[in-house]
Amino acid sequence: MILEFRTYRLKPGTSEDFLRVMAEDSVPLLEKAGLRVVDFGRSLVAEDGHEEAYLIRAFSSLEEHERQEREFYGSEAWLAGPREAIVSRIESYHTIAIETSEEAVEALGRR
């Protein structure tokens, strides 16, 4: 399994709206497209006072990760859907991916 951690540094004052759009629009759209969302939410730590959030997703392989991301982020559903409401609130983001077991993925899931 490939476990992807994406962190978002949000523009000041946008975290509530960002998380609402994630919960109501973006995550359901990701899941409808077949992407496995393990968890998402607000960071418990505001590094240097910044509002931050995270998204954790799982993929069966690195190739599947690349294929699913390419298809999803190029889709009309994303581009005409919640993309602007998400992207407009992000100051920067960082992604890491690690190889792990299905058991570790399941242990992280809170959804």
Rank of each mutant, 00 (worst) to 15 (best):
E16G: 11
L62I: 04
V37Q: 11
H65G: 01
P28M: 12
Y8Q: 02
M22C: 14
D48C: 10
P28R: 06
V21R: 14
H65K: 10
F72M: 00
L108V: 00
L62D: 03
E76F: 09
E99M: 15
T95W: 03
G41C: 13
R9I: 08
H50S: 13
S75K: 02
D25E: 08
E64F: 14
E91N: 02
R20K: 10
F18R: 04
A53E: 09
A46L: 04
R57C: 03
I56R: 11
A85E: 08
Y8K: 12
L29F: 15
P12Q: 07
F18P: 12
I2K: 15
S88Q: 11
V27W: 14
R110A: 00
G34P: 09
S75A: 14
R67Q: 01
L79S: 03
R6C: 11
A107C: 00
S15L: 07
E102S: 03
H50I: 03
S88A: 12
L30S: 12
G109A: 01
A23I: 13
L79T: 14
M1D: 10
P12A: 03
H50F: 13
R67E: 00
R42D: 03
G41N: 13
T95D: 00
L3Y: 11
E51H: 05
G49R: 01
F40W: 10
R36G: 07
H65F: 04
E71Q: 13
E52C: 05
T7P: 02
G74Q: 12
E71A: 15
L29M: 11
P82C: 01
E102G: 06
T14A: 12
E52M: 15
V45F: 11
T7I: 02
Y73W: 01
V38Y: 15
G109Y: 10
I96Q: 10
G81I: 08
A23M: 12
S60D: 09
